[in-house]
Write a protein that binds this DNA or RNA. Structure first.
Lengths: 340, 340
DNA sequence: GCGCTTTGTGAAATCGTTTTCTTAAGTTTT
DNA sequence: AAAACTTAAGAAAACGATTTCACAAAGCGC
C-alpha cells in the first residue's frame, strides 16, 4: 500500500478523503464550488499519499496540455540559448513546460520535429525566422496550433512575430560605416541558404551601400557558419580582394571575433587599417581586443515576449501579433574613421 | 470533412482503411503481424487524412511517454547550453522529446520543476551536480523515475552519473601551477553554496596546495557568479591581498576572462606578473589576450552520454551507471613560470 | 409551510489510444 | 480427413483523469 508501484491515483485520494473522484478533481483544479472542509480533507489526503496527477490522462480528457514547443537552429550559439532561457523562464512562471528541439538550420528536420511536437500536444510553437517548409506551417494551421516567429518582425496571416528587422539592421551597420567615411567595404555574412535573417542583414547592408552610390560589384561578400574559424578564413578572403576594404560588417560577433583574430595574425591593424562591426552583442564582444563594435540583439526579450504572446488569451493576442524590437548600435573600439 | 476541427482520429483511419482500430494501432506501432496489403491500406489512409496520433491518449494507455526532462541551472552559460544541445540531439534520434527547465541554481525551484516533470510523465530526468533536495530524489525514486547526474562522476545508489571529478580537476590546476614554480596562489571560485562542482574544484585546488606545504591561510579565495564583472572584482580583491599571488585559478573561463580584463585595466602583466588558469574551455578562451590556459570540460559528450544511458535498456544501464570523463589541461598563453 | 432557486456533491460518460482476449480461417500433422 | 496448431484481425476493456448531468439538501420569498 505504501510501496505501491506507480503511486496513488485520483481515486485513491477520493477514497481516503471519503468523497467522489469528481470532487477531488474539482479541488485539484481550484474549482470554487467545493466546501472548505472537504477541500482541506482532499488536499490533506493528496499530500499524505504523495499523489501526483497523471498529466496524460488530464491532457486527454481536458484537451489542454500546457506544453509549448520551440525549434531553434542550435543551442550552441548564445543568441539562441539566451532566447530560450528567457522563453522558458517566463513560461515556467505559469507552469507551462517547454520542449525544445534543435534543427541545425535544416528545415526538413524542422518539419519532422514540428510533427512530433504536434503529436505531443504542444499548444504553441516557437520558430526562428520565417523560412520554413510550407508543409510545416500548413500542418500547424490545420491543427490549429499557434506559432510565433522570432528574430524577425514580419508576422504572417497565421503566425505572430517578435523580433527585429534584419534588413534595417544591415542598413544601420552600413550607414554607420559610411558616415565614418568608408567607401571600400566588405561583408562576412552568415550562411544565407534557408536563412532569412542572414540574408536580410546582407541585403540591407548592400542596399544601403548601393543607395549611397557604391558599386556593389566592388564589394566582397563571403559567407561562413557562425564559427571562429569561418570568421578567420572569411576575413582572409575579404582582405585579399583586389580592392581591400577598410571596413567589414560581420553577420555575427563570432565571425567578427574570428576576423579580428585573423587581422592579429596577419598584422593588420584594427581599426587602424580596417574597421570591423559585429552582430548580436554577445559577451565575447567585450573580450576581443580591440573590443567589438556591434549591433545588439534583444535575445532574452524576444524569448520573454514570445512567452507573453503564447500565454495571452486569444483576444489579447490580436494586439501582440507583431512586435518589432529595437536594434541598438553599440560602439566600442573596433571601428574608426576611414584611413585617408 | 476536410476542415475537421482537431483532425482525424485513429478510428477515422480505421474506417477509411476498412479495418478495425486495433489493426490501425498495430500498423502505427510497427507490429509485424499485419498483412502487407492491409498495412499499406492503413498507411495510405493515415497519410490521406493527415492523421497525427494523440500522444496523450497513447501515453495514457501504453504508460510510455518518450519524454525526458532536464533541469539545469541556466542556459545562459555555454557549458550547460552545449550539454543540453548534445543531450537533445541524441535523444531526438530516437524520437524522445526533451523538456527543459532552468533552476537558476535554486534547489527549491528545482524540486518544483522536478514535480512538474513527473506529472508530465518524464521517464528519466537529467540533473546537474549532486546537490539536491532530498525530497526531489525521494520523489523520483518513489515514482521509479531514473535520473542522471551530470558534471559530477559520483553516482549514488539510485542515480547514475556522467561527468568528471571536480576535485581532481582542481588538483590538476594546482599541480600545473605548482610545477611552474608558483608558491603564492589565489583562487576565484564559483558560488559554492548548494554547488558541489564549484566547491569540489576549490577543495581539490586547496588540498593539493596544502599537500605541497603551502599555508592555506595565505591563499586568498573569493567567490563570484559566472559573470565577467565578478571576475574583474574578484581579481581585484585577490590581487589586493597582502601577499599578492603570482597565479590565480578561476572556477570558470568567464571569471578568468574578467580577471584578465581587470589586469589589463590595472596594468598587471599576464602572464608576466600573474598566471591565470580558467575552467571549461569555452570558445572565449581563444579570444582573450593572452589566450587562456584552461581545463577542458566535455560538455557535449556529457549530454550525449547521458542520453545514451537514458536510452539504454535496464540491463545495459548497469554498465553505464557511472562514467567518468577525462578533463584535459589546455595550455595557452595566460600561464608562465613564476616570476623570480 | 409550499414551490423555486441555489449550492454542493456524486454517477457515469468520455477523451483516443493500446492491449487482451477471442475467433475465424488457413496449415500442418497424423 | 480429422485433430492440432498458426496466423491475422476484430470486439471490448482499460488507462486516469475531467466534465456533464442529475439530484439531494438548504435557503428564500410569499
Amino acid at each position: 500500500m505504501d510501496t505501491e508501484d506507480g503511486g496513488a491515483k485520483l481515486i485513491d485520494v477520493a477514497r481516503l478523503a471519503n468523497c467522489s473522484p469528481a470532487t477531488v478533481s474539482r479541488v485539484l483544479n481550484g474549482n470554487p464550488t467545493v466546501n472548505e472542509t472537504v477541500r482541506e480533507r482532499v488536499a490533506r489526503a493528496a499530500r499524505d499519499l504523495g499523489y501526483v496527477p497523471n498529466g496524460s490522462a488530464r491532457a486527454l480528457r481536458s484537451t489542454r496540455t500546457r506544453l509549448v514547443g520551440a525549434i531553434i537552429p542550435t543551442l550552441d550559439h548564445a543568441i539562441y540559448a539566451t532566447m530560450v532561457d528567457g522563453l522558458q523562464a517566463r513560461l515556467a512562471e505559469k507552469n507551462v513546460s517547454l520542449i525544445i528541439n534543435t534543427s541545425t538550420y535544416d528545415i526538413d528536420l524542422e518539419y519532422e520535429q514540428a510533427r512530433l511536437l504536434v503529436e505531443r500536444g504542444a499548444e504553441s510553437i516557437v520558430l526562428v525566422g520565417s523560412t520554413h517548409r510550407s508543409e510545416t506551417l500548413a500542418m500547424l494551421e490545420q491543427k490549429r496550433i499557434g506559432y510565433v516567429y522570432t528574430y524577425t518582425s514580419r508576422a504572417t496571416e497565421a503566425g505572430a512575430a517578435v523580433g527585429f528587422d534584419n534588413e534595417k539592421a544591415g542598413r544601420t551597420a552600413a550607414r554607420y560605416l559610411l558616415d565614418l567615411g568608408h567607401t571600400r567595404l566588405g561583408m562576412i555574412a552568415g550562411i544565407t541558404q534557408d536563412n532569412d535573417r542572414a540574408a536580410g542583414r546582407r541585403d540591407g547592408f548592400l542596399n544601403e551601400l548601393e543607395r549611397s552610390g557604391i558599386d556593389l560589384a566592388s564589394v566582397p561578400v563571403v559567407e561562413g557558419a557562425y564559427r571562429l574559424d569561418d570568421g578567420k578564413t572569411g576575413m582572409k578572403r575579404v582582405m585579399e580582394d583586389r580592392r581591400r576594404p577598410t571596413a567589414v560588417f560581420c553577420g555575427s560577433d563570432i565571425l567578427a571575433a574570428g576576423a579580428i583574430k585573423y587581422c592579429h595574425g596577419a598584422g593588420i591593424a584594427v581599426p587602424g587599417e580596417v574597421s570591423i562591426v559585429g552582430f548580436d552583442n554577445l559577451e565575447i564582444a567585450e573580450l576581443t581586443s580591440p573590443e567589438l563594435t556591434t549591433l545588439e540583439v534583444p535575445a532574452r526579450d524576444m524569448g520573454r515576449i514570445a512567452a507573453d504572446y503564447i500565454l495571452a488569451s486569444p483576444s489579447q493576442r490580436l494586439h501582440l501579433r507583431q512586435r518589432e524590437l529595437a536594434i541598438r548600435l553599440v560602439v566600442r573600439e573596433s571601428t574608426a574613421v576611414a584611413p585617408r
